[in-house]
Amino acid sequence: MENKHKLLIIVGSVREGRFGPVVASWVAEQAGIHGGFEVDTVDLADIEIPLELPAASPKYAGADYPRPAGMAALTSALEGADAFIVVTPEYNHSYPASLKAAIDWHFTQWTAKPVAFVSYGGAAGGRHAALHLENVLTELHAVTIRDGLAFANYFTAWQDGRPLDPAAPGYAKTVLDQLTWWAGALRSARKAALYPA
């Protein structure tokens, strides 16, 4: 629908036994309840993401950047999105290599679009991963949202695919409200003028 923003939820971990798809499913449900988005989910485990990059930079190559055919679905989803939610665990105080590779294969697809983070982990709830992602995506001229969701000790804090904290849906609504505002503002700005990257 024209009045809805296209939200892409990205499952960042490809690790065996990962919890990311559970979190992403709940986030997608919350986005559906919110009602401001047309929601799509991309699981990086389903995408071919080589670590070896071409010599050219995606910043300057644009549509001519030589990506593997197996990455076409990801590139198309990133290109068509008005906003992103990145679902990430924390590995060694940062985010997964799969997520970094997926980001590095693209540039203009992120530009002048808002990104929110939903992280999970041990005591820190994946916050280190989210902080590192803020720096990376700012370099790509994305707009990172101040508020996010961080699920500490997810292995005991979730049951039957849902967080046990009764306040979690309220926190999710705050994130989605901010993401909606930024998605609308930035989509209008992108239509009005070319972003000076």
Rank of each mutant, 00 (worst) to 15 (best):
A72K: 13
H128K: 14
A28E: 08
Q178L: 09
V118S: 00
V27A: 06
G126M: 03
V11H: 01
S94P: 10
W105P: 00
K113L: 11
L53I: 10
G122V: 01
A183W: 02
A142M: 05
V118K: 00
M71N: 03
A97C: 10
A97Q: 07
N153E: 14
T75A: 15
L133I: 03
A97K: 01
Q178G: 14
D82R: 04
I10L: 15
A45L: 07
V118D: 01
F107L: 03
F107M: 01
E139F: 14
A31D: 08
E48T: 13
R127E: 07
A123D: 10
L149T: 00
K173L: 03
V14F: 04
L140F: 15
L140E: 01
A101V: 08
D147K: 07
I9T: 05
H106L: 12
Y171W: 12
Q159T: 12
E48D: 15
D82K: 04
Q30A: 06
H132E: 12
V11E: 03
G80H: 07
Y65V: 08
V11L: 11
E2P: 05
R162P: 08
V27D: 01
Y195V: 14
G184A: 06
T138H: 15
T41V: 15
K100Y: 11
L51V: 10
N153P: 06
E52A: 13
Q178C: 12
P54E: 09
F107Y: 15
A157P: 05
W105F: 14
R187P: 08
E16V: 12
L78V: 11
G125K: 04
I9S: 02
Y65H: 06
D104L: 10
V115K: 00
V39Q: 02
A77W: 01
V39C: 02
T108C: 11
V143Q: 11
K173D: 11
L149A: 04
A116N: 12
G161K: 09
T180C: 09
A197Q: 13
H5I: 07
A130F: 08
P68H: 06
G121K: 00
A55P: 02
H128L: 09
F19W: 02
D64K: 15
A116S: 06
T75R: 13
E16T: 14
L176S: 04
V23I: 15
A183G: 15
G170P: 06
A77D: 04
R162M: 06
A72W: 03
G70R: 08
A28Y: 03
A102N: 03
E38Y: 08
T88P: 01
E48L: 14
V11M: 05
L44T: 02
P66D: 07
L179C: 06
D160V: 10
E38Q: 07
W181H: 12
N135D: 14
S57C: 06
K4R: 15
A63H: 12
A73G: 08
K100V: 13
D160L: 05
G184M: 09
W110K: 00
T180G: 14
P163L: 09
L194R: 14
S119R: 04
G36L: 10
A24Q: 00
T144R: 00
I10G: 05
T144A: 05
I33H: 06
D64Q: 14
R18L: 08
T41Y: 03
